[in-house]
């Protein structure tokens, strides 16, 4: 564990807390893509199946359970409790366009052809693009509430900090996992445009509005 990874995990937890708090406080999930949240739930479920087969640390297991639990809770809020506020007309990204390529890619580009390993690989590929329905929704409506922007910034920072962690681990431990690194870079690059808008608009107390 190094400082980058700790910061990354904390940013990830912060993102989840911001999202749950926003939905709960406003009693609404307007502006939130349920499809991205379905993809994230799928990511955690596929990746953290190993909670039953391999033990890394108390920290790891606790975080895995936390991510599984909170993603389930988020889906419950969007698709059950506050379903009337769910903006499904604007959440029109076809997730099959992400699921199918990720599934095929994980069958061909993996570290080992075993069930758990392929599911892990699939989750890594899927996570890298899981935010696209949400970004698509922001692009479609042309705006995002500040709180949604904070959520996206925290969530984007998490994988960017993991990239720093991987650079550190490569130097300090000669450890690297090419699949995670490339997918992490793709994931971070997808947020770049948003990061730019966040820094130039939201941090100046302006609403995130895209040019028409």
């Amino acid at each position: 564990m190094n400082i980058f990874r700790l910061m990354a995990d904390l940013a990830h937890v912060l993102a989840i807390v911001i999202l749950l708090h926003k939905i709960w406080k406003s009693r609404s999930c307007a502006g939130i893509s349920g499809k991205s949240q379905i993809l994230f739930a799928l990511v955690y479920f596929m990746r953290y199946l190993d909670i039953m087969t391999s033990y890394v640390s108390f920290y790891n297991s606790t975080m895995k359970l936390l991510f599984l639990g909170t993603s389930g809770a988020t889906l419950n809020l969007i698709y059950r409790k506050f379903k009337p506020s769910y903006d499904h007309n604007h959440d029109s990204f076809r997730i099959a366009y992400l699921l199918v390529p990720c599934a095929l890619l994980s069958l061909f580009l993996n570290h080992e052809f075993s069930v758990l390993e392929i599911l892990w690989t699939f989750s890594i590929y899927l996570e890298s693009v899981a935010i696209l329905p949400q970004l698509f929704m922001v692009a479609k409506t042309g705006e995002a509430e500040s709180i949604t922007s904070h959520y996206l910034f925290a969530l984007g920072s998490y994988r960017a900090l993991y990239v720093c962690n991987w650079v550190y681990r490569y130097i300090a431990e000669s450890h690297f996992d090419l699949i995670a690194i490339i997918a992490g870079l793709v994931q971070t690059i997808l947020y770049c445009d948003f990061f730019y808008l966040y820094i130039t608009k939201v941090l100046q107390n302006r609403k995130l509005q895209l040019p028409a």
Binding site: R5, R47, V56, N60, E117, Y162, N165, D177, A180
Partner: peptide, 10 residues
């Protein structure tokens, strides 16, 4: 050094 398919990160 760990085998590559031991995933110790989240």
């Amino acid at each position: 050094q760990q085998a590559e398919n031991v995933h110790d990160e989240l």
